Simulated assay, not measured.
Amino acid sequence: MQGEQKYWFPAKRYGWGWGFPTTWQGLLVLGAYIALLAGGGAWLKADHSHGWFVLYAAALTAVLLLVCWLKGEPARWRWGNGN
Results as ranks from 00 to 15, higher is better:
Q2G: 12
Q2H: 14
E4Q: 15
K6E: 15
K6P: 03
Y7R: 12
F9P: 05
A11W: 08
K12Y: 00
K12N: 10
Y14R: 07
Y14T: 07
W18T: 09
W18F: 03
W18D: 08
G19Q: 02
G19S: 15
G19N: 07
P21Q: 07
T22Y: 00
T22Q: 14
Q25N: 14
Q25D: 02
L27H: 14
V29Y: 13
A32W: 02
A32Q: 01
A32C: 05
Y33M: 03
Y33L: 06
I34R: 06
A35Y: 13
L37Y: 10
A38F: 13
G40H: 02
A42Y: 09
A42W: 02
L44E: 10
L44P: 05
K45P: 01
A46C: 01
D47T: 12
H48A: 11
H50W: 15
H50I: 12
W52L: 12
V54S: 07
L55C: 14
Y56H: 08
Y56F: 15
A57W: 02
A57Q: 01
A57K: 01
A58S: 15
A58D: 00
T61W: 05
T61S: 15
A62P: 01
A62M: 06
V63Q: 03
L64A: 09
L64P: 05
L65C: 13
L65Q: 08
L65I: 12
L66K: 07
L66Q: 10
W69K: 14
W69T: 14
W69G: 04
K71L: 00
K71D: 01
K71Q: 13
G72L: 01
P74G: 07
A75Q: 11
R76G: 02
W77R: 10
R78A: 03
W79A: 12
G80S: 06
G80Q: 02
N81S: 09
G82C: 04
N83C: 06
